[in-house]
Structures are given as structure tokens and as C-alpha cells.
């Protein structure tokens, strides 16, 4: 693995340039996904070089931009949790970030990494879907519901870097993760829900993090029972080492009921 060249760009512009022109190059942010895979040599094709994004100041920080909050692609979860803007306007994102790994992982893991890695179990992803976040790259802005196109496949071009994630102000989103234990667990089911507009976004229940469109339509009509019934058909869970499809279906419905109840209570 140490045959892989390490490239340290001096600026975002430099990084974009290098990424476009270096074959076999892979961006490296916190490394909490990529370093595991590099060491186990499971990255295909095997990268020739890694491009360090961690040290780029342009990719760090949380800022207010008009009526949205913009989070740098390489800002750590710890930074996100500590941000007053996030605490105030995006509590569901802070809640999701708190469930990721433990201190060691939160100090390094980033939204850019969670997005590009595109695991169906990525915990921030349903939250980003529920907020209708926008993924900002070096060349465009991609609406989040267009971002995940298949199992671990994203809308990103092979030479495209995520620079930030933009989330709107003034939306109430509730979040819930179900895993085997409270810390350092991969989700069996993870969900984020917004009442207005109706958004029900779920992870670990299909090949991509998805929005439960039929359940959302029912919720739009304020028909909670119909939403809970419909969500079971919206998802495509599988049996795997962590859980069974049947369990995931039942839990998805229970979690949705719980989150909607919480909304109803205010």
C-alpha cells in the first residue's frame, strides 16, 4: 500500500487540477473509509496515488450563505457537531454525526467522504435527503436526490471533487438510527423525516439511501397510517450479516411511527 503515491495539493484549485490530470488518483479526506480499503487492498482498480484533501482550508468549516448553511466537504463530524449554525438550524445533522463511529472516527470522518463512499448505510445520507441538500462540486451543484444512482455509485464524474454541502434553513427534520449498539455500529435502519415538505429518507434498506416516495405522498395528505403501510413497499431490504429483510421492514415501520409521533407531539 505504501507504493501508492501521496500528493499534497497547495490549494483547492491545485487539487482540482491534479485530480483531473493524474490517472489512478483517489481523493483522501479523513481516510476512515479509504485507509481501511487501501490497507486491505480492496480498492479496485488499485489506486496509483492519493490526493490529500484533509489539509485544504477551502474544504473546511461551516458557514451561513444567504438562507442556507454550507459545510466544507472535508470538515470533520466533530467540527460539524460543534458548529452553532448546525446546532441551531440543522440539529438532525448534528444528531446523525454524533452516531458515527466514536470520537476517533468523528474527528476524521467527513461529509464529502460519506457522500462519495455512498454506502447505503451512510448515516448522514438520509438526513441530507430529508433536507433536500445540494452537493456542491468543483463544477456544479447536484441536488441530493439525483446524487445516488446505484449501489455505491454516484452522479460524480471520475475527476470531480465534492467541495461542500449546502442545506436550507428553517426545516424541521427528525433522525433515528438503529444499530446493534449505541457506538461504532453500522446501521440496520437509519431514517430522517421532515413533515413540511414531506420527506421520508431511509438508509440500509436498499442498494442506495432512498426517499420513500409513496409514504411521502401519504404523509403529504396527513395520512400517517397510510404512510406507515406504504413505507414497507417503498423499501427493498435484503438479508445480510447484520439483519434480515423482514426485521428491517418491521423496524422501518416502527421507526417511522416513532418519528411521526414525535412530530405530532411537537
Amino acid at each position: 500500500m505504501h507504493k501508492v503515491k501521496f500528493i499534497r495539493p497547495t490549494s483547492l484549485a491545485d487539487a482540482v487540477q491534479i485530480y483531473r490530470t493524474t490517472p489512478g488518483c483517489r481523493p483522501l479526506a479523513g481516510g476512515t473509509d479509504l485507509m481501511v480499503m487501501l490497507h486491505a487492498r480492496t480498492v479496485r482498480p488499485e489506486p496509483q496515488a492519493v490526493l490529500d484533501l484533509w489539509s485544504l482550508a477551502e474544504l473546511k468549516g461551516v458557514r451561513r450563505v444567504q438562507d442556507s448553511v454550507e459545510i466544507g466537504a472535508a470538515e470533520s463530524y466533530t467540527g460539524i457537531i460543534a458548529s452553532r449554525d448546525v446546532q441551531q438550524h440543522l440539529p438532525a445533522l448534528a444528531a446523525a454525526a454524533r452516531t458515527i463511529g466514536a470520537a476517533q472516527i468523528q474527528n476524521r470522518g467527513t461529509l464529502g467522504g460519506n457522500l462519495a463512499n455512498a454506502s447505503p448505510a451512510g448515516d448522514t445520507l438520509p438526513v441530507l435527503l430529508a433536507y433536500d441538500a445540494v452537493v456542491v462540486t468543483d463544477r456544479r451543484a447536484i441536488p441530493i436526490d439525483k446524487f445516488f444512482i446505484g449501489y455505491r455509485k454516484t452522479e460524480l464524474h471520475p475527476d470531480e471533487l465534492i467541495t461542500a454541502v449546502r442545506l436550507p434553513l428553517g426545516r424541521r427534520v427528525a433522525f433515528r438510527k438503529v444499530g446493534t449498539r449505541a457506538a461504532q455500529a453500522i446501521s440496520k435502519v437509519v431514517m430522517a423525516v421532515s413533515g413540511h415538505p414531506a420527506r421520508i429518507a431511509i438508509g440500509s434498506v436498499a442498494e442506495v439511501p432512498l426517499r420513500a416516495r409513496r409514504a411521502e405522498a401519504a404523509l403529504e395528505r396527513d395520512d400517517i397510517e397510510a404512510a406507515i403501510a406504504a413505507v414497507a413497499d417503498d423499501i427493498r431490504p435484503i438479508d445480510d450479516v447484520r439483519s434480515t429483510a423482514a426485521y428491517r421492514r418491521a423496524v422501518t415501520q416502527n421507526v417511522l411511527r416513532g418519528l411521526l409521533d414525535a412530530f405530532a407531539r411537537g
Partner: peptide, 12 residues
């Protein structure tokens, strides 16, 4: 800040 050194590339 505490980190797992197995996940850090030394260049970082």
C-alpha cells in the same frame, strides 16, 4: 485530538 493512527496516512 484523538484519532486511530491506522487510518492516517503519514503525509497527513
Amino acid at each position: 485530538e484523538v484519532v486511530d493512527s491506522c487510518l492516517i496516512a503519514v503525509g497527513q
